[in-house]
């Protein structure tokens, strides 16, 4: 079983399935069980259980087996959780985040920004010239936005992520 108290794993699962989903994972019964049994044992709503199982299945953390009742012909879906692949999934998440952070870093480095002092918008230089350096929302004068600290912190994390 995965250590849900580890801050990385907890954060990851929380982003995927939310608080109730995490509660379901923590209290998941052993062995193969139906969604209804999971709902009854974990106290999580059946709808949430199904949603959580679907997300976990998409991310290869849930295994599902179909069983047909020979008398009624009804299908029963039996579920079991398997987090053995979590390392691989975390690596995928890392790559995705790194790719997006690099794109953002490039965008921040290549552009000049103007921002509204009231915090309404942040515009590119070209966009700011179009609005004559006035905020399109509240009409305030736009001010130059110094993103050097933003870039510095972002670059540091991109470098750290690239090196591992």
């Amino acid at each position: 079983m995965v250590d849900v108290h580890d801050k990385v794993i907890r954060g990851y699962l929380m982003s995927l399935v939310g608080e109730e989903g995490l509660q379901m994972i923590e209290n998941m019964p052993e062995g193969e069980v139906t969604d209804e049994e999971i709902a009854a044992k974990t106290g999580v709503l059946l709808n949430t259980v199904r949603r959580t199982l679907f997300i976990l299945y998409e991310n290869k953390f849930a295994i599902c087996r179909r069983e047909r009742d020979s008398n009624s012909g009804w299908l029963t879906y039996l579920w079991r959780l398997d987090f053995s692949d979590i390392e691989h999934q975390l690596m995928r998440e890392k790559k995705k985040l790194l790719r997006n952070l690099k794109t953002r870093l490039e965008f921040e480095e290549d552009n000049v920004f103007y921002t509204c002092p009231q915090g309404c918008v942040r515009l590119l230089f070209d966009e700011a010239t179009e609005t004559e350096f006035l905020c399109p929302m509240c009409g305030e004068d736009l001010a130059f936005y110094d993103n050097s600290h933003f870039i510095e912190v972002l670059k540091k994390r991109v470098d750290a992520l690239s090196s591992v």
Binding site: V8, L16, L90, K94, N100
Partner: peptide, 26 residues
């Protein structure tokens, strides 16, 4: 384990995890 700590910013896990929106990092 340490290398995945970089997915956390404070207590916030990677913004891209579980995101279903149109991806426009800019």
């Amino acid at each position: 384990k340490e290398k995945y700590d970089l997915l956390l910013a404070g207590a916030l896990f990677s913004a891209c995890t579980g995101c279903t929106g149109d991806c426009q990092p800019e």
